[in-house]
Amino acid sequence: MIKIDKETIKEMAVWAQVRVPEEEAEVMAKEFTETLAWIGERLKDPDLQKVSPMVSPFDEPIPLRRDEVIEGNQSQEILSNAPDTIPDFFCVPKMVE
C-alpha cells in the first residue's frame, strides 16, 4: 500500500503552485493515504487488463481548421482584465533565469 507523507504533499503543492500550511499538509497526507488505499482496492478488477483507457466519451474525428487569420487586433480586450500592465504588456515580478 502506498503511503503519502507530508513531503509528497508539499512536493505536489510546489508543482501545482499552491501553498499548503504545515498542519494542513499533515491532515491531507493522512486523508490521502486512506483515499489511495480505497482507490487501490477498487482497481484490482482483473477486467482492467482487457480494456484500453477511455480518455473522452467523444468518438468523432478531430476537426481541422482552415489556415486563416480570424482573431487578433484585440490587445486592449486581452489586457482589459490584467492586474498589472505597462502599455500593451502584461507585467509580473522580475523573472530570473
Partner: peptide
C-alpha cells in the same frame, strides 16, 4: 522581456 523595467518582467503573447 526582462530588460525594459527594473523590477518587472514584461510578457507578450
Amino acid at each position: 522581456i526582462h530588460d525594459m523595467h527594473p523590477s518587472k518582467t514584461m510578457l507578450d503573447f
